[in-house]
Amino acid sequence: MAAGKTGGLKRYYDLNGWLFIAPSLILISVFLVFPIIRSLYLSFFSGKGMMMKFAGFGNVVRLWNDPVFLQALKNTVTFFVVQVPIMIVLALLLASVLNNDRLKFIGFFRTAIFLPCVASLVAYSVLFKSMFSVDGVVNQALFAVGFIDTPIGWLTEPFWAKVLVILAITWRWTGYNMIFYLAALQNIDKSIYEAARIDGVPAWARFLYITIPMLKPVILFTTIISTIGTIQLFDEVYNLTEGRGGPANATITLSLYIYNLTFRFMPSFGYAATISYVIVLMVALLSFLQFYAARDRS
């Protein structure tokens, strides 16, 4: 065969290879590669609307003196630092319990816990907004069981607004992550757990010393995906706070700030592009760190 694969045949093979991937490559070049480079270029310009002038690193300097940007950066970091670990641990616990086929109604539990990730981001944000109103169903329930004696201002107090955003994202995405762990767990040989159980290893230790190490690649994957997602958080905060990121910018995220800078007020394309590169750098840095951390230990 090797002799036949020379000249014309090889060129035919190569040509077909390029033809199959060409549509994707063209679309990616136009709608992804070009814009990301254009963003970088724009970040060197300042001005409003189409009146732009070269500003060098002026936008970067402006970042450090912009309290709204700093607040958005702080909020975004808070969201993923607090939310991602809570969600991953919760998803792992759920998956390890749901992996037990001896439990009854296991199919129902799996479907129920997975169902939130079918909901549209806008729809569930709006639902949460109505559930967490001052006299809403959540405050009433908390009041009824005696957890609170005055209603919590979920949408009016900066601290609780952040908590609400974290609760909402956790509700939406825990089941999504859980499914990945469940699939990975089902590939693990059950006899390992049996052996550990017979040797008297308690459940928590089996979870900590068998489940977690076995799932490390999946945990890494989902952590990266979740972190990238949370850094770009937009739909939820926009719809929980009428697009303002309130109260008092307590929930404004970088993406929301970019949107407001570009499409709510007179557009500052250059400055908004600079902020978008902060997101690019954060995503790149965190993905690198997480990969590095995972490589190092193995």
Binding site: I36, S39, I228, T262, V280
Partner: peptide
């Protein structure tokens, strides 16, 4: 093509926020 494929995978990390302004323009 394998090299291009690695680059394609790298685009998974590109946040939409960094594309929306040029795309809008």
């Amino acid at each position: 093509r394998d090299r291009i494929y690695s680059l394609v995978l790298l685009t998974l990390m590109v946040p939409f926020a960094a594309l929306m302004i040029p795309l809008f323009m």
